[in-house]
Simulated scan of single mutants.
Amino acid sequence: MRVAIRHFVRVSLLLGSMILLVPVASGAELAPDAPQTYVVRSGDTLWDIAGRFLRDPWLWPEVWQANPGVGDPDLIYPGDVLELTMVGGEPRIRARRGAGPRVVRLTPHVRSSPLSAAVPTIRISSIAPFLTRPYVADAQDIKRAPYVVGFPDEHLIAGVGDSIYVRRIRTNTQTAFQILRPGDELRDPDSNELLGYEAVFVADAQLERIGDPAKLKVVSMEREVSIGDRVIPGDAERRLENFFPHPAPEGLRGRIISVLNGVSQIGPYDVVVINRGTRDGIEPGHVFETYIGGTKERDMVKSGAHEPNWRGPGPLSSEFWFGSDYEKKGWRADEPDSNAPFPLHMDFRRNNQKYFKPFEQSGVLMVFRSFERVSFGVILKASHFINVGDWIASPPS
């Protein structure tokens, strides 16, 4: 009997998905200080290990070679030794099972071989709150969903153990529900399309009686239930399945439109929302590079704002009245109309000299959950501060 220790919410995120099925020419480049061998330690993640060997960790599937000579050849465990070799001029990495007894004799006739917890792809703690909660709601679905209309007593809010009234639940085919509160709009920054709403998780509830209104009981909560909160089936959101990092579709670009951790400047292991989803071919495991730049900036030299004037402008200077970012365009008259008693006067207009700030690669993002129009991603690497509105693009091939 072999007992495998599995991660919670069925998210193993293991190397088991990463067997190299067909020999192909690898585009993976080794990291400058790639080791010849590495002993896997408790607390390691696949992303960290891949980064030790490869310049681009998401290309790990191209170099991994499962060892068919050992049990569970597709998984990596603490104590395993990873060996780097070259095959036909291409890097390959193979695991050699770590030393130490894995078999424990329980009785003369029964053996148990418990497995150490396999190495996860990333640190699950950073994304765990977002794995099974419906944090994005479609604009139409949230409007059509049943909603909390009141309470059996005079409460204004409800907590664990309290009952609530919900409009339009007429069958008992579903008994477990989640209660949401529509949050901020998620709009495409380029087209202004409404992509959905950030849906704040409120509570879990159990059906007590069908009807209009139906009666539900709150069984767990993160915040108090209020009138107007929406109610959806508890299993409407499919749990995250196993996945592995791989490049996003070639040529695909997008934007970061929200950050879910309540921060203004985004760094490693923060969770963000991007304006690309399943309709764009996005799936869990897709890797994007993030970019800063592309913004229109003022040319301080062209506008004259950078020119020092130690004496400062006096009242006889146009800069005194208009500022240094205005320039003389000529003379104009007859304004506001030809009959107005205004003399010919100088025409000063704002100097709008601008330049576009070049794009610079600022980090790496991996999608771990996809909806139709948007997806959740976790920042795995950041060389600059990342902000809402920054661009993302598939890694260059």
Rank of each mutant, 00 (worst) to 15 (best):
L82H: 09
D204G: 11
I164K: 02
R373M: 02
F322G: 01
I179C: 02
G330W: 07
F8S: 05
R55A: 10
P245A: 08
E224W: 10
S226H: 02
R238P: 03
A128L: 14
S116D: 12
T132Q: 06
E289S: 08
L252H: 02
I266F: 03
P114G: 05
D212W: 12
V273D: 05
R223H: 07
R6M: 14
I122T: 08
R123S: 13
I386M: 13
V272R: 13
A340W: 15
L15W: 04
E297S: 13
E335Y: 12
L13Y: 00
P247W: 07
A248E: 02
W331D: 11
A66H: 09
A25T: 12
E241C: 03
F244R: 00
M300I: 14
F320Y: 10
P341S: 08
A214Y: 00
L156P: 00
A199F: 01
R209A: 10
G281Y: 04
G389V: 09
L14Q: 05
L131H: 01
P213A: 11
D235C: 01
I169V: 13
V136L: 13
V273S: 04
S12E: 13
R102Y: 02
E283M: 14
N192M: 08
L106P: 14
R373D: 11
R94P: 01
P213S: 04
V11L: 02
R10L: 11
A31S: 12
V374Q: 06
P268E: 15
A199W: 00
V149T: 14
L252W: 00
S17F: 02
V3C: 04
F342N: 04
A34P: 10
D138Y: 07
G228W: 02
L14G: 10
S220M: 15
V3D: 04
H306V: 12
V87W: 15
K217E: 14
I5M: 08
R105N: 03
I5Y: 06
V287A: 13
V24K: 10
V24R: 07
T278C: 12
G293M: 08
S324I: 00
V388S: 07
S258Q: 06
R41E: 13
R96Y: 03
K143N: 07
D56I: 01
Y197Q: 10
D347H: 08
K381C: 01
A66G: 08
A99V: 04
D44T: 06
K357Y: 08
K217M: 09
L186P: 04
V273T: 10
D162H: 13
S125K: 06
F376L: 15
